[in-house]
Design a protein around this nucleic acid. Structure first.
Length: 213
DNA sequence: TAGGCCATCTGGTCCT
DNA sequence: AGGACCAGATGGCCTA
């Protein structure tokens, strides 16, 4: 896609075209030696200019190609890091591939849930934590046995029906609580959070992504 | 077929 | 000057 600046540059390039200067047409008076020398000089200058502009174009093109290459590489590295992150996030089935945005939001929640687990463990050192439960959240067409409601289609209802501890979702101003806050659509992730209290995961900062068990 | 997700290209901006 | 980072545009692929 030709960009505007490049187009403008091409136009400027054409305005300096040698041939357009040469064929002015019409009968001419016999050329004086000085005039001939000047003409040759202009011609040389024009050719030089055209050559240097072509070289400039080539240079710009090669810089762009290199920049594209770097950008592609950068995005590949970013995606590799995202893949590593996916690798440490528990999903079910295991080969479920979260989208980029799902990965980031789930990671956010996961970290939050782990932090909450630690905090609660410190608050109640003598009380044993609830037994680990798996959170199975289905993608469309892939319902877990429990058949939880869809957070996308009915996020509000399951939020309101959830336990009072869900207030954690909205009490933190830095933690958007609803799917609307994220501009999120009906897509549903499929997560299995092994060893985490389901309550914590459901009430995480990104709780709109997690329906009740 | 519309919408979501993604990779890639591109130009602009900032930093070293 | 060159590289990193960013956001917008575009087109391809996939799914409901």
């Amino acid at each position: 896609m030709p960009s505007a600046p490049e187009t403008r540059y091409s136009a400027a390039e054409n305005s300096g075209d040698v041939s357009s200067r040469l064929d002015s047409g019409g009968p001419r008076a016999p050329e004086q030696p000085e005039e001939a020398a000047g003409r040759k000089q202009r011609l040389r200058r024009g050719r030089c200019r055209a050559r240097s502009e072509a070289a400039l174009h080539t240079l710009r093109r090669s810089r762009r190609v290199k920049a594209n290459d770097r950008e592609r590489n950068r995005m590949h590295h970013l995606n590799a890091a995202l893949d590593e992150l996916r690798g440490v996030l528990p999903t079910f089935p295991e080969d479920t591939k979260l989208t980029k945005i799902e990965t980031l939001r789930f990671a956010h929640n996961y970290i939050w849930a782990l932090s909450e687990t630690l905090r609660l463990a410190e608050q109640r050192p003598r009380k044993a934590p609830p037994p680990p439960r798996d959170l199975l959240l289905p993608r469309p067409g892939s319902r877990s046995p429990a058949g939880p409601p869809s957070p996308g289609s009915d996020a509000g209802s399951w939020l309101s029906a959830a336990s009072p501890s869900l207030s954690a979702c909205t009490s933190d101003p830095s933690s958007p609580a609803t799917s609307e806050d994220y501009g999120y659509g009906p897509r549903e992730p499929l997560f299995a959070c092994h060893g985490l209290p389901g309550e914590l995961l459901r009430s995480g900062p990104c709780c709109a992504r997690y329906p009740p068990l």
